[in-house]
Protein backbone atom coordinates (compact mmCIF):
# COMPACT_ATOMS: atom_id res chain seq x y z
CA UNK A 1 0.00 0.00 0.00
CA UNK A 2 2.64 2.44 1.15
CA UNK A 3 4.82 1.54 -1.77
CA UNK A 4 1.97 2.17 -4.15
CA UNK A 5 1.30 5.59 -2.66
CA UNK A 6 4.97 6.38 -2.90
CA UNK A 7 5.13 5.22 -6.52
CA UNK A 8 2.08 7.21 -7.44
CA UNK A 9 3.49 10.26 -5.69
CA UNK A 10 6.80 9.86 -7.48
CA UNK A 11 5.09 9.60 -10.84
CA UNK A 12 3.10 12.65 -9.91
CA UNK A 13 6.27 14.59 -9.18
CA UNK A 14 7.76 13.64 -12.51
CA UNK A 15 4.64 14.68 -14.29
CA UNK A 16 4.70 17.85 -12.19
CA UNK A 17 0.99 17.60 -11.86
CA UNK A 18 0.10 18.99 -8.47
CA UNK A 19 -3.31 17.37 -8.31
CA UNK A 20 -2.11 13.85 -9.01
CA UNK A 21 -1.83 13.11 -5.28
CA UNK A 22 -5.39 14.18 -4.74
CA UNK A 23 -6.52 12.05 -7.64
CA UNK A 24 -4.97 8.98 -6.08
CA UNK A 25 -6.22 9.97 -2.63
CA UNK A 26 -7.42 7.97 -0.83
CA UNK A 27 -5.50 4.82 -1.62
CA UNK A 28 -6.01 3.17 1.79
CA UNK A 29 -8.51 3.32 4.67
CA UNK A 30 -8.91 6.63 6.48
CA UNK A 31 -9.09 6.82 10.26
CA UNK A 32 -11.65 9.19 11.75
CA UNK A 33 -10.74 9.78 15.39
CA UNK A 34 -13.64 10.41 17.74
CA UNK A 35 -12.21 11.70 21.02
CA UNK A 36 -14.99 10.04 23.07
CA UNK A 37 -16.13 6.53 23.87
CA UNK A 38 -18.15 4.52 21.38
CA UNK A 39 -21.91 4.95 21.59
CA UNK A 40 -22.02 8.60 22.64
CA UNK A 41 -23.71 11.36 20.62
CA UNK A 42 -20.48 12.49 18.93
CA UNK A 43 -19.67 8.90 18.03
CA UNK A 44 -23.13 8.57 16.49
CA UNK A 45 -22.61 11.66 14.34
CA UNK A 46 -19.15 10.42 13.32
CA UNK A 47 -20.30 6.96 12.34
CA UNK A 48 -23.16 8.26 10.23
CA UNK A 49 -20.88 10.68 8.41
CA UNK A 50 -18.06 8.14 8.09
CA UNK A 51 -20.35 5.56 6.53
CA UNK A 52 -21.47 7.96 3.81
CA UNK A 53 -17.95 9.30 3.23
CA UNK A 54 -16.69 5.74 2.76
CA UNK A 55 -19.11 5.30 -0.11
CA UNK A 56 -18.12 8.56 -1.75
CA UNK A 57 -14.36 8.08 -1.38
CA UNK A 58 -14.33 4.40 -2.27
CA UNK A 59 -12.21 3.66 0.80
CA UNK A 60 -13.27 2.69 4.29
CA UNK A 61 -13.45 5.57 6.75
CA UNK A 62 -12.87 3.75 10.05
CA UNK A 63 -14.00 5.39 13.27
CA UNK A 64 -11.44 5.11 16.05
CA UNK A 65 -12.52 6.04 19.57
CA UNK A 66 -9.69 7.73 21.44
CA UNK A 67 -11.46 8.81 24.62
CA UNK A 68 -10.09 10.55 27.67
CA UNK A 69 -9.35 13.96 29.18
CA UNK A 70 -12.46 15.64 27.81
CA UNK A 71 -11.63 14.88 24.19
CA UNK A 72 -8.16 16.41 24.31
CA UNK A 73 -6.30 13.09 24.02
CA UNK A 74 -7.94 12.22 20.71
CA UNK A 75 -7.48 15.75 19.40
CA UNK A 76 -3.80 15.68 20.42
CA UNK A 77 -3.29 12.46 18.51
CA UNK A 78 -4.70 13.95 15.31
CA UNK A 79 -2.76 17.18 15.80
CA UNK A 80 0.45 15.14 15.83
CA UNK A 81 -0.52 12.72 13.03
CA UNK A 82 0.92 12.81 9.50
CA UNK A 83 -0.72 15.61 7.52
CA UNK A 84 -1.71 13.33 4.65
CA UNK A 85 -5.47 13.27 5.10
CA UNK A 86 -5.54 9.69 6.41
CA UNK A 87 -6.11 10.73 10.02
CA UNK A 88 -9.11 12.96 10.71
CA UNK A 89 -10.78 14.30 13.83
CA UNK A 90 -14.47 14.68 14.45
CA UNK A 91 -14.91 16.85 17.52
CA UNK A 92 -17.62 19.05 18.96
CA UNK A 93 -17.69 22.46 20.66
CA UNK A 94 -15.10 21.10 23.12
CA UNK A 95 -12.46 21.79 20.46
CA UNK A 96 -12.94 25.50 21.19
CA UNK A 97 -13.62 25.41 24.92
CA UNK A 98 -10.65 23.13 25.65
CA UNK A 99 -8.39 26.07 24.74
CA UNK A 100 -9.51 27.74 27.96
CA UNK A 101 -10.49 24.77 30.12
CA UNK A 102 -7.09 23.11 29.73
CA UNK A 103 -4.05 25.17 30.67
CA UNK A 104 -1.54 22.53 29.65
CA UNK A 105 -2.86 21.54 26.24
CA UNK A 106 -0.16 19.84 24.12
CA UNK A 107 -1.57 21.40 20.92
CA UNK A 108 -3.27 24.58 19.80
CA UNK A 109 -6.88 24.03 18.74
CA UNK A 110 -6.86 27.23 16.71
CA UNK A 111 -3.74 26.63 14.64
CA UNK A 112 -2.81 22.94 14.66
CA UNK A 113 -5.71 21.76 12.49
CA UNK A 114 -6.87 22.21 8.95
CA UNK A 115 -10.66 22.44 9.08
CA UNK A 116 -12.59 20.35 6.57
CA UNK A 117 -16.00 21.64 7.44
CA UNK A 118 -18.72 22.10 10.03
CA UNK A 119 -20.95 19.06 10.24
CA UNK A 120 -23.95 19.86 12.38
CA UNK A 121 -25.28 22.20 15.04
CA UNK A 122 -27.16 20.40 17.78
CA UNK A 123 -29.46 22.94 19.45
CA UNK A 124 -29.88 23.04 23.20
CA UNK A 125 -33.04 23.44 25.24
CA UNK A 126 -33.71 25.06 28.57
CA UNK A 127 -35.74 22.53 30.55
CA UNK A 128 -37.02 22.04 34.08
CA UNK A 129 -38.64 19.33 36.17
CA UNK A 130 -42.28 18.87 35.38
CA UNK A 131 -43.53 20.28 38.72
CA UNK A 132 -41.61 23.51 38.12
CA UNK A 133 -44.07 26.45 38.62
CA UNK A 134 -42.96 28.75 35.76
CA UNK A 135 -45.10 28.70 32.62
CA UNK A 136 -42.71 30.36 30.17
CA UNK A 137 -39.11 31.51 29.99
CA UNK A 138 -39.84 34.97 31.45
CA UNK A 139 -41.53 33.42 34.45
CA UNK A 140 -38.71 30.96 34.79
CA UNK A 141 -36.11 33.73 34.91
CA UNK A 142 -38.18 35.70 37.41
CA UNK A 143 -38.72 32.66 39.61
CA UNK A 144 -35.09 31.64 39.48
CA UNK A 145 -33.94 35.14 40.40
CA UNK A 146 -36.40 35.35 43.29
CA UNK A 147 -35.47 31.91 44.60
CA UNK A 148 -31.76 31.85 43.77
CA UNK A 149 -30.97 30.17 47.08
CA UNK A 150 -33.40 27.32 46.43
CA UNK A 151 -33.20 26.53 42.73
CA UNK A 152 -30.68 23.93 41.60
CA UNK A 153 -29.12 23.80 38.15
CA UNK A 154 -27.91 20.42 36.90
CA UNK A 155 -25.08 19.79 34.46
CA UNK A 156 -23.31 16.76 33.02
CA UNK A 157 -19.83 17.62 34.28
CA UNK A 158 -17.11 20.21 33.71
CA UNK A 159 -16.83 21.17 30.05
CA UNK A 160 -20.02 19.38 29.03
CA UNK A 161 -22.41 21.27 26.78
CA UNK A 162 -24.91 21.51 29.64
CA UNK A 163 -22.20 23.03 31.81
CA UNK A 164 -21.34 25.66 29.17
CA UNK A 165 -24.97 26.51 28.57
CA UNK A 166 -25.59 26.68 32.32
CA UNK A 167 -22.72 29.14 32.80
CA UNK A 168 -24.02 31.29 29.97
CA UNK A 169 -27.54 31.18 31.41
CA UNK A 170 -26.40 32.30 34.85
CA UNK A 171 -24.27 35.05 33.31
CA UNK A 172 -27.18 36.35 31.24
CA UNK A 173 -29.65 36.44 34.12
CA UNK A 174 -26.94 37.76 36.44
CA UNK A 175 -27.71 35.23 39.18
CA UNK A 176 -25.61 32.44 40.63
CA UNK A 177 -27.44 29.19 41.29
CA UNK A 178 -26.39 26.03 43.09
CA UNK A 179 -25.02 23.86 40.32
CA UNK A 180 -25.32 20.14 40.81
CA UNK A 181 -22.80 18.24 38.68
CA UNK A 182 -23.35 14.76 37.27
CA UNK A 183 -21.15 12.38 35.35
CA UNK A 184 -22.79 12.44 31.97
CA UNK A 185 -26.21 13.40 30.78
CA UNK A 186 -27.97 10.15 31.72
CA UNK A 187 -27.86 10.54 35.48
CA UNK A 188 -28.49 14.28 35.26
CA UNK A 189 -31.60 13.71 33.18
CA UNK A 190 -32.68 10.97 35.58
CA UNK A 191 -32.67 13.34 38.53
CA UNK A 192 -34.40 16.06 36.53
CA UNK A 193 -37.17 13.65 35.54
CA UNK A 194 -37.34 12.44 39.15
CA UNK A 195 -37.63 16.03 40.37
CA UNK A 196 -34.44 15.91 42.47
CA UNK A 197 -33.00 18.92 40.66
CA UNK A 198 -34.84 21.88 39.11
CA UNK A 199 -33.37 23.27 35.91
CA UNK A 200 -31.01 22.18 33.16
CA UNK A 201 -29.93 23.24 29.70
CA UNK A 202 -29.08 20.32 27.47
CA UNK A 203 -28.85 19.14 23.86
CA UNK A 204 -32.00 18.22 21.98
CA UNK A 205 -30.43 14.80 21.46
CA UNK A 206 -30.98 14.14 25.14
CA UNK A 207 -34.08 16.19 25.86
CA UNK A 208 -36.42 15.71 22.89
CA UNK A 209 -37.68 12.29 23.98
CA UNK A 210 -38.30 13.47 27.53
CA UNK A 211 -40.02 16.67 26.42
CA UNK A 212 -42.32 14.84 24.02
CA UNK A 213 -43.10 12.24 26.66
CA UNK A 214 -44.10 14.99 29.10
CA UNK A 215 -41.49 13.93 31.65
CA UNK A 216 -39.95 17.41 31.80
CA UNK A 217 -41.00 20.98 30.95
CA UNK A 218 -39.28 22.80 28.10
CA UNK A 219 -38.97 26.60 27.93
CA UNK A 220 -36.85 27.57 24.95
CA UNK A 221 -34.39 26.41 22.34
CA UNK A 222 -31.03 28.15 22.25
CA UNK A 223 -30.58 28.56 18.49
CA UNK A 224 -31.66 31.45 16.24
CA UNK A 225 -34.35 29.29 14.62
CA UNK A 226 -36.85 26.82 15.99
CA UNK A 227 -36.24 23.07 15.89
CA UNK A 228 -38.38 21.00 13.52
CA UNK A 229 -38.87 18.19 16.01
CA UNK A 230 -40.15 20.61 18.70
CA UNK A 231 -42.30 23.07 16.74
CA UNK A 232 -44.04 24.58 19.79
CA UNK A 233 -40.83 25.58 21.53
CA UNK A 234 -39.87 29.28 21.13
CA UNK A 235 -36.29 30.41 20.63
CA UNK A 236 -34.47 32.15 23.48
CA UNK A 237 -34.54 35.30 21.34
CA UNK A 238 -38.31 35.31 21.06
CA UNK A 239 -38.82 34.21 24.65
CA UNK A 240 -36.85 37.11 26.11
CA UNK A 241 -33.34 35.80 26.74
CA UNK A 242 -31.54 36.58 23.47
CA UNK A 243 -28.08 36.30 25.02
CA UNK A 244 -28.34 32.56 25.54
CA UNK A 245 -27.17 31.33 22.15
CA UNK A 246 -25.47 27.94 22.19
CA UNK A 247 -25.32 25.03 19.83
CA UNK A 248 -23.21 21.95 20.16
CA UNK A 249 -21.49 22.27 16.82
CA UNK A 250 -19.45 19.46 15.36
CA UNK A 251 -16.51 19.92 13.01
CA UNK A 252 -14.31 17.63 10.92
CA UNK A 253 -10.58 18.37 10.91
CA UNK A 254 -7.32 17.14 9.41
CA UNK A 255 -3.89 17.96 10.85
CA UNK A 256 -2.40 21.33 9.91
CA UNK A 257 -0.40 21.17 6.67
CA UNK A 258 -2.65 18.69 4.91
CA UNK A 259 -2.44 19.44 1.13
CA UNK A 260 -5.23 21.76 0.03
CA UNK A 261 -6.44 19.41 -2.71
CA UNK A 262 -6.77 16.54 -0.22
CA UNK A 263 -8.77 18.79 2.11
CA UNK A 264 -10.90 19.75 -0.86
CA UNK A 265 -11.56 16.12 -1.72
CA UNK A 266 -12.48 15.31 1.89
CA UNK A 267 -14.72 18.36 1.98
CA UNK A 268 -16.48 17.07 -1.13
CA UNK A 269 -17.13 13.76 0.59
CA UNK A 270 -18.37 15.57 3.69
CA UNK A 271 -20.76 17.68 1.63
CA UNK A 272 -22.07 14.54 -0.03
CA UNK A 273 -22.60 12.97 3.39
CA UNK A 274 -24.53 16.01 4.59
CA UNK A 275 -26.84 15.71 1.56
CA UNK A 276 -27.27 11.97 2.07
CA UNK A 277 -30.88 11.15 2.92
CA UNK A 278 -30.05 8.51 5.55
CA UNK A 279 -27.72 10.92 7.31
CA UNK A 280 -30.35 13.67 7.18
CA UNK A 281 -33.06 11.37 8.49
CA UNK A 282 -30.93 10.14 11.39
CA UNK A 283 -29.77 13.66 12.22
CA UNK A 284 -33.41 14.76 12.29
CA UNK A 285 -34.19 12.03 14.80
CA UNK A 286 -31.33 13.37 16.91
CA UNK A 287 -33.08 16.72 16.87
CA UNK A 288 -30.56 18.32 14.54
CA UNK A 289 -29.80 18.74 10.87
CA UNK A 290 -26.68 18.98 8.72
CA UNK A 291 -25.28 22.50 8.41
CA UNK A 292 -25.96 24.29 5.13
CA UNK A 293 -23.46 23.69 2.32
CA UNK A 294 -22.01 27.20 2.59
CA UNK A 295 -21.06 26.59 6.23
CA UNK A 296 -19.57 23.13 5.69
CA UNK A 297 -16.35 24.59 4.31
CA UNK A 298 -12.76 24.66 5.58
CA UNK A 299 -12.70 28.48 5.72
CA UNK A 300 -15.87 28.77 7.78
CA UNK A 301 -14.77 26.08 10.25
CA UNK A 302 -11.28 27.58 10.75
CA UNK A 303 -12.72 31.01 11.43
CA UNK A 304 -15.52 29.61 13.56
CA UNK A 305 -13.15 27.70 15.87
CA UNK A 306 -11.18 30.90 16.51
CA UNK A 307 -14.35 32.91 17.14
CA UNK A 308 -15.75 30.30 19.53
CA UNK A 309 -12.47 30.12 21.48
CA UNK A 310 -12.65 33.89 22.06
CA UNK A 311 -16.34 33.79 22.84
CA UNK A 312 -16.11 31.15 25.58
CA UNK A 313 -12.81 32.29 27.11
CA UNK A 314 -14.24 35.06 29.33
CA UNK A 315 -17.28 33.00 30.31
CA UNK A 316 -15.17 30.07 31.44
CA UNK A 317 -12.59 32.30 33.12
CA UNK A 318 -15.25 34.23 35.02
CA UNK A 319 -16.66 30.97 36.31
CA UNK A 320 -13.14 30.02 37.43
CA UNK A 321 -13.24 26.41 36.24
CA UNK A 322 -10.33 24.45 34.87
CA UNK A 323 -10.09 20.85 33.84
CA UNK A 324 -6.40 20.34 34.47
Amino acid sequence: MRLKTFAVAAVALVAAAGSAFAQSFPSRPITMVVPFAAGGPTDTVARLVAQSMSETLGQQVVVENVGGAGGTLGAARVAKADADGYTLLLHHIGQATSATLYRKLPYNPATDFAGIGLVTDVPMTIVAKKEFPAKDLKELVAYVKANADKVTLANAGVGAASHLCGMLFMKEIGTQLTTVPYKGTGPAMNDLVGGQVDVMCDQTTNTTGQIKGGAIKAYAVTTPTKVASLPDLPTTKDAGLPGVQVAVWHGLYAPKGTPADVVQKLNGALLAALKNNTVKARFAELGTEPVSADRATPQVLDAFVKAEIERWRPIIQDAGVFAD
Binding site: R47, T205, G209, A281, E285, L286
Partner: peptide, 11 residues
Protein backbone atom coordinates in the same frame (compact mmCIF):
# COMPACT_ATOMS: atom_id res chain seq x y z
CA UNK B 1 -29.80 6.21 18.30
CA UNK B 2 -27.77 5.05 15.37
CA UNK B 3 -30.86 3.13 14.32
CA UNK B 4 -32.97 6.22 14.78
CA UNK B 5 -34.58 5.20 18.06
CA UNK B 6 -34.10 7.62 20.88
CA UNK B 7 -34.92 5.78 24.07
CA UNK B 8 -37.34 7.68 26.20
CA UNK B 9 -40.84 7.63 27.58
CA UNK B 10 -42.26 7.85 24.09
CA UNK B 11 -40.77 4.72 22.53
Amino acid sequence: TMQGIIPGPTV
